[in-house]
């Protein structure tokens, strides 16, 4: 039997909102250590890696490893039926055809059950090598979302240049161009408002806006986002999910023809 309970469904609602633009279906790998998802978008340009540790759940039981193929659109619809304060329980039996979502209101007077059919999926698992990145930038997630949205008006791609002076985002298009520079924070009153740059070597990479704008749907999950970059390798855009896990987005850079 598999059973995982969160005291508040808000986290799971936000996770679904953070992946639904990129993924139509995904396999949820459930084991004793928690729930893991690794899936590429339809165009195989980006990769989503989600990790929810079992010790972050209020209750977690997984008697045997399960691979459950889920339709992300349906799952999003179901999670939208939960209030943020509802308790959510995921339940499946061994060799399941279905997964059950159970929402219980705070006053325990409303109990909702949604059963979703699982799908058989051919899954490709990609091996992500351990990488030491040339630049690792931590910045406010809302600021990153704002920059991606603003610069998307000027072009289809954003160039991110990171040096010890700061991080510069540039977009160029037919109507003009724009750039935004952020300096490393000298003194941040609040940790979550800080811009922190850990640079070994300067990096300049270009990424498609449409994927970055999908990644920033994870903004409600965490006040800070971590961007890890090295020359000619995919960007890692990471959001912590409370003390339960993280979501990482990998995006292949655009390269010169």
């Amino acid at each position: 039997m598999f059973e995982a309970r969160l005291a508040q469904s808000a986290i799971l609602k936000k996770v679904l909102e953070a992946v639904k633009d990129l993924l139509t279906e995904a396999t949820f790998e459930c084991s004793d250590s928690g729930i893991q998802v690794q899936a590429m978008d339809n165009a195989h340009v980006s990769l989503v890696s989600l990790n929810l540790r079992s010790d972050g759940f209020d209750k977690y039981r997984c008697d045997r490893n399960l691979s459950m193929g889920m339709n992300i659109g349906t799952m999003t619809k179901i999670l939208r039926c939960a209030s943020s304060e509802d308790t959510v329980t995921l339940r499946a039996w061994d060799n399941p055809d279905n997964i059950i979502f159970i929402f219980e209101s705070q006053n325990k007077e409303k109990l909702s059950e949604y059963e979703m059919k699982l799908i058989n999926m051919d899954q490709e698992h990609l091996g992500i090598p351990e990488t030491v990145y040339s630049c690792v930038v931590k910045m406010p997630s809302q600021e990153f979302a704002r920059i991606c949205k603003d610069l998307s008006q000027f072009g289809e791609a954003i160039t991110i240049a990171c040096s010890k002076e700061g991080i510069k985002f540039t977009a160029a298009g037919d109507y003009g161009n724009a750039n935004i520079k952020l300096a490393q924070t000298a003194e941040a009153d609040k940790e979550e408002e800080a811009v922190i740059i850990d640079m070994q070597e300067p990096v300049k990479l270009t990424f498609a806006c449409r994927y970055l704008n999908s990644f920033v749907k994870a903004t409600p999950l965490c006040a800070q986002v971590k961007l890890s970059m090295s020359g000619d390798v995919p960007l890692v855009c990471e959001y912590q999910i409370g003390d339960i896990g993280h979501i990482r987005y990998y995006l292949a850079p655009k390269i010169d023809d």
């Binding site: 490709e124 091996g127 498609a208 292949a252 023809d257």
Partner: peptide, 14 residues
């Protein structure tokens, strides 16, 4: 001009 490569050209299918 820049072109887009796929993520699988960086990470091998296991």
């Amino acid at each position: 001009n820049k072109s887009q490569r796929g993520i699988e050209s960086y990470f091998k299918v296991q």
